[in-house]
Each structure stands twice: as structure tokens, then as C-alpha cells.
């Protein structure tokens, strides 16, 4: 994404140019939706989060500080929306009966699509703030610096969350025979 082009589009969008808003939406709807999907693992919720995030962004464009990258801002809004949705779900760590039944033993090996499913399940089993770090790094491919901007946290904290998340995922996927 070209940051200068984003700044120009944001300026034109602030002036009320609908086409500029459409272009920003076209650029970022896919990463925003995919990030929400990874965080929530529900396409309908992900769509709602992405929709709300864009509408909030366009409604509050006057509050956007151009010293930050536009994508950091829209990702921050989307992540916060997704975390709100997660907060309204059942408490973390409470598995449904179906999910609990599916948990395989240490000897079980899975392949292909099952690997993806296992990764998604492992992701959903860790705390939302750790999952967010994984999504920012591995779905949105952000640098430590950009992750720090999105999460409004020091880089040190961002790294710590990312490393802790990977450690937990490694342990869970080792248990399932995937690593």
C-alpha cells in the first residue's frame, strides 16, 4: 500500500469525495475482513466488524491524525471492534461440547485441510490479545513498529505478546502432532 496515496485519498475523502472513500474501502476491505475473520472465526461477525470499522472510520475521519499511517488507524478500529465482539461472547477458555469432543490425542496426525482447521482452533484457544498479535503479524504482515501503532502499546510489549502467542501455539500444535 502506498502511504502517500492513502494520505491524498484521506484528504479527498475528508472533503466529501465519495470516490476517494470507495478507493480506500477497495484497498483495505480484504485485509480488514481477513483480520476480523481470523480473530472471530465467523464470517458473518467478521463482515459486521469490517462494516462497522469502515463506517466509524469514515464518520470520524476528522479525528484521524495523518502522522500515523491510515492502515494502522483502520486496523486499530477493526481490532477494537473485533475484541468488543469477542468480549460479548462466552468467557474465554470455555469450550463447547462439540469442540471438546473434537480435541484429538497426542498421537493423532492431521493433514491438509485438517492442518488449517487445527491451526484455527489453536488460535481460538489462546487469549484474544495474544491472538491479535498473531493476526497483525501473520495475516496483516505488519512490522513490530506498525503493530505497536495499531495496538498503542510499546514495541517491547508487542514482541512479548507475539512470542508468548507463538510459544502457546507451538505447544498446542505439537500436542496434535502437526509440528
Amino acid at each position: 500500500m502506498n502511504e502517500d496515496d492513502d494520505r491524498i485519498l484521506v484528504r479527498r475523502c475528508r472533503q466529501g469525495e465519495r470516490a476517494a472513500c470507495e478507493l480506500l474501502l477497495g484497498r483495505y476491505q480484504k485485509p480488514v475482513f481477513n483480520a476480523a475473520l481470523r480473530l472471530l472465526r465467523n464470517p458473518e461477525d467478521a463482515k459486521d466488524v469490517a462494516q462497522t470499522a469502515f463506517l466509524k472510520a469514515f464518520e470520524h475521519l476528522a479525528d484521524y491524525d495523518p502522522k500515523f499511517k491510515f492502515y494502522s488507524w483502520i486496523y486499530r478500529i477493526a481490532v477494537n471492534e473485533a475484541l468488543n465482539v469477542l468480549g460479548s461472547r462466552k468467557p474465554f477458555g470455555e469450550l463447547s461440547g462439540e469442540e471438546a469432543d473434537e480435541a484429538p490425542g497426542p498421537e493423532r496426525r492431521v493433514e491438509g485441510e485438517q492442518v488449517s482447521k487445527a491451526i484455527e482452533e489453536a488460535l481460538m484457544s489462546i487469549k484474544p490479545e495474544l491472538r491479535t498479535a498473531i493476526v497483525l503479524r501473520h495475516t496483516l504482515h505488519l512490522s513490530y513498529r506498525d503493530m505497536s501503532d495499531v495496538l498503542e502499546l510499546p514495541e517491547k510489549t508487542v514482541k512479548s505478546r507475539l512470542y508468548d502467542a507463538r510459544q502457546l501455539l507451538r505447544d498446542r500444535l505439537l500436542q496434535r502432532g502437526i509440528l
Binding site: 476491505q29 480484504k30 485485509p31 480488514v32 475482513f33 481477513n34 475473520l37 481470523r38 463482515k47 469490517a50 492442518v115 488449517s116 491451526i119 484455527e120 498473531i134 503479524r137 501473520h138 495475516t139 507463538r166 501455539l169 507451538r170 500444535l173 502437526i178 509440528l179
Partner: peptide, 13 residues
């Protein structure tokens, strides 16, 4: 692990 996470496909919204 990083390869697996990076390789999780993206979907069209």
C-alpha cells in the same frame, strides 16, 4: 509454525 501461520489463505470479503 510461522510458515503455517503465514500460509493460512486469505478469503475475498
Amino acid at each position: 509454525l510461522a510458515q503455517l501461520l503465514d500460509g493460512m489463505g486469505e478469503v475475498e470479503p
